[in-house]
Every structure is written in structure tokens, then in C-alpha cells.
Design a protein around this nucleic acid. Sequence first.
DNA 1: AAATGTTAATCAATCGTTTGATTAAGTGCA
DNA 2: TGCACTTAATCAAACGATTGATTAACATTT
Lengths: 213, 213
Amino acid sequence: MTDTQTQAGTRDALLEAAQYLFGHKGYEGTSTRAIADRAGVNVASIAYHFGGKAGLRRACAEALAERLNAALQAEGPRPLPGTPQAAVAEMETAIRAITGIIVGSDGARDTVTFILRELGDPGEAAELIFARLFLPRHARFCQLWSIATGQPAEADEVKLTIFSLIGQIVYFRIAEPFVARRMGWSATGPDQAAQIADLIIGNLNAMIERARR
Amino acid sequence: MTDTQTQAGTRDALLEAAQYLFGHKGYEGTSTRAIADRAGVNVASIAYHFGGKAGLRRACAEALAERLNAALQAEGPRPLPGTPQAAVAEMETAIRAITGIIVGSDGARDTVTFILRELGDPGEAAELIFARLFLPRHARFCQLWSIATGQPAEADEVKLTIFSLIGQIVYFRIAEPFVARRMGWSATGPDQAAQIADLIIGNLNAMIERARR
DNA sequence: AAATGTTAATCAATCGTTTGATTAAGTGCA
DNA sequence: TGCACTTAATCAAACGATTGATTAACATTT
């Protein structure tokens, strides 16, 4: 009985270790040996399972997109809400969920760290994450906004507005250490995430009100 | 007559080359040789002028903070505006200026690329940039918001609101390739920056209106 | 000549990848 | 069932290339 991985365990262990290290030290800053060590696995396994370091990076993004899409599910063939009130309600719920995942320190923390690192390093992985994770939700938000305000869903101003809405959430995570210090937070947990979500929902309602005029 | 740098020229050439490469390929992804080549200078000059690669990184951050502070100047001992209208006007002007620098493709493009890369890689450089560049403006914005709305400048909600305001701008730059594609932009230049600034100023006014109620 | 810059050459360490060997689990046939 | 063979998976070891840093010689200026 050994403590090394066997069978499919190796693949998953590599994905988890790589996601953690790529996220915290960056792709270039992470050596294949460091990944293998953290996974408790031989270096050669990376080439065997993923073709190489770059393949492992791509596999991380794919696995993560699938996993997060499942967690946020919802992205199924849901019908659009019928009233402005219901549309606003769905946006508020979504903002709370997304803020909790991006800002709060739940289980997805390392995953979000990886995503943000890739966002700043345009490439295949960022492409994949945006196409599968961000854009579908952006389109949904545009439709909800359209129902809530009466503006056409594909109007330039609407699309930009939704970007500005999501940007607020993402920035709180990017600047987290500095936000925490400025706010006097010892940690950024679910309570802080809720406080941030409340604020952004307030902004959302202010923006909707203005758009209706 | 050679084409290599002499005297103080070497130092500046290294700073510029390093800022470009650190920003576009990341700190770990950039070799000292690549920096020296781009600067048209010998590798050993890095150790001579900056003590090493890490020192060059710090020097980049310091030089950039000084330069951007000068460009945005304003941060002198300006008096606070006396009326809510004047406070809103200053915020709008600042948003236009910051959006132009961060989003538009003016001369500061490589500098902003470096900053965003460092923001995602917490360390000495990010610390310096935030302390010297971001926080002073955050505090100023809080005061302006206070004058505009009557809320106390150091209230939690105000501080968070200002973060959410800045976050909108930063995100447009981070997600620039994806925003551009979604919007059908072939490039993100001054016109697009102005469009984004208009939108964010609209959001600002909506938020202020709501805060006054 | 002393101080300051710049250079080519070299260093040990580490990089991602490849190799050949080894193990264990299937597979086909008698 | 028993034997011969193939396949998938993992390993230690080694590969050539590149890394950041250092050295000592050379050039320029004061």
C-alpha cells in the first residue's frame, strides 16, 4: 500500500494542484516539479495526461468552467421572467450568488484566484473562461435589464451597463487586500461579501431607476 | 561610435524595457536577458543599476507612480469644492481623466498594463502603487462624495461606493479584449473611452441621486 | 589615477521535456 | 483455467536549454 495516486486519481490531483499553484504563483512562476510534488505524483505524468504544462493549463480552465457552470447551474433553458419586478429580482439573486463566489471565501476561492490570474494574461485559457462562463451570463443579464427597463437588450448602452455592473464585483476581489485594509476588515468572508452585494444591488436599482426615466 | 547606451541612458532604457516586458509577459515570464536586449544594453547593467531583477521591478513601480502622479497632478493641496454641484463636477472630470488613461490607448498604455499585472500579483510593487496612486484618490473621492450627498466621508458605505465606482473603470480595461468583441469594436481608443466614461458618469449620477434620498 | 559605467564570459541552479524501465490490469487463445 | 501478449499508467533519471547572478577586464569621465 503506497500513498501515491493510482488510476484516474493522478489526473485529478494534478488538476487541483495546478489550479492552486497557477492561481497563486502564476503560470510562469510555477514549475512542473512543484505541481507534481503538490499532487504527490511524478513529473512525467503531466506530459502523459495533458501533453505538457500548457495542456495542463488548458485542462484546468476547461474543468473549472464545467464545474462553475454546474455550481451556478441555472444556465439551463430557463424561461425569461415576465415582469420588470421579476427581472430585477433575478438580477439581485444572481448578483448575490456571483458576489458570494467571487468575493466570499467559500470553496471556490482557489478557482476564482486562477480565473483572475488568467484574465490578466490573455490566452487560450482566458478565452475559454470568458466564452463559457462570462458571456452567457452577460447575455442573460442584458435580457433581464431589457425587461426591467424597456431598453433593447442588444443596445450598446445596455451591454456596457452590464459590463460595468459585473466590473464592480470583480474589482472587489482584485483589490481585496487593499479594500480590506481601507475598510478595517481582518478578513473578507461571507459577511463582507453580503455587504458588498447589498451595495451593488443598491447601485443596480439606482441605475435601473435612472434608465426608466 | 556605437549604438549602445551610455551614462544615464542605460538606466532609463532598462526601466522602459522592463515596464513593457513585465507588463506584457509577466515578471516571471520575463528574463533579464530579454530586458537587456530590448533596452540595447548588457545584462549586467541590471545588477549594477538596480541590484537585480527584483530591484528593477520595484524601480519600475516607483518611476511609474511618480510619473502618473505628475500626469494626473491635481493631487496637490487643492481646496475642496464648496457646493454639491462643484463636487459632482470634479468627480466627473476625474472619471473622464482616469478612464482616458486606463481604457484609452494613449501613451500610458504600457504603464497601465504593468500596473494591472502587478495588481494581480500582490507584492511590494502592488503595495507601492496602491499606496501612492490609488488610496490618495480614493480618499479624495470619498470627500467629494460626502460633499455631493451629505453622507459622512469615512462611512463604510461611502468607501465601498467609491471602490465600486473605480472598479467599473478598471474592469473595462481588464476585460478589454472581450468587451471589444462583444461590442463589435475593432479597437478601444479615445472614442470608446469617452463612451465608457459617459456611461460611468451616468451611473455616478444615478447613485448620487439615490444616496440623497 | 580614481571613480563610474559597461561589457563578454562564466557560474550553479532550475527549467520543461524525454527516456527506458517497471508495474498492473486487461485481452485473446488453447 | 492457464498462458502469452498488449495496453495503460507510473516512475527515477537524465537531457539540453535557459535562468538570475557574478566576475574580471575594458572604457570613459573626472
